[in-house]
Amino acid sequence: MTAMLEVCGLTVNYGRIQAVRGIDFTLETGQISALVGANGAGKSTTLLALSGLLPKAGGQVRFEGEDITRLAPHQIVARGIVQVPEGRAILTTLTVLENLELGAYRHGLKAADDELDAVLHLFPPLKERLHGLAGNLSGGEQQMLAIGRALMAKPRLLLLDEPSMGLAPLVVQEIFRALRAINRGGLTLLLVEQNVCQALKLAQHGYVLENGLMALSGPGRELLGHPRMLEAYLGG
């Protein structure tokens, strides 16, 4: 295994408040990693900082050996790090295809033909509603579209912020099944989740954030059985 992303001493502030306090972690190429923790632990803040949407107050981020700490969001996307944001950020007045086309913004839709086929194969409901307005999709379908749109950007590392949020259990299973399939295709994933149990079952490696600090880390399945995790998140 080789390290794809190395985060060292990452600190992110909101004004005077330190939301993320000098955390370290490494993502291995081809793996699914999960960043879990309670509400307000600093998970989404970490993802936003990795994507360049929040300024980093300290620390260093290296992607495949390159220092990307100070890069702008569009430069980070150009390196192959693409995020599926919390709340999906679907453009509801555009059609499903237009949303997917936006995902292929850097390459153009013609150069992303294979990706489009793969996305529609992975998420059949999107194929049926390709020319319909994205605003008319259900919550689950919108999440599929958000993931599909990110895949259209030909990512090498996919960051997902709460993909299960607000979705029915069956739909969550479907989304997680799709994430596993995406990972089998060779894509590295970093999953931020409040759904600790599901996330750690899916991930090869897990990190637990508490109050902006890295509290625990280890293989996903091992973390599930950790006494501290059982006590804090899994109902003892």
Binding site: S51, H74, V77, P85, A89, E98, L102, Y105, R106
Partner: peptide, 18 residues
């Protein structure tokens, strides 16, 4: 179109918003 719809989404798709 993307910036008008959602600036964050546009940034995350590689649009140089500024």
């Amino acid at each position: 179109d993307a910036i008008r719809g959602d600036e964050t989404a546009a940034s995350l798709m590689g649009v140089d918003v500024r």
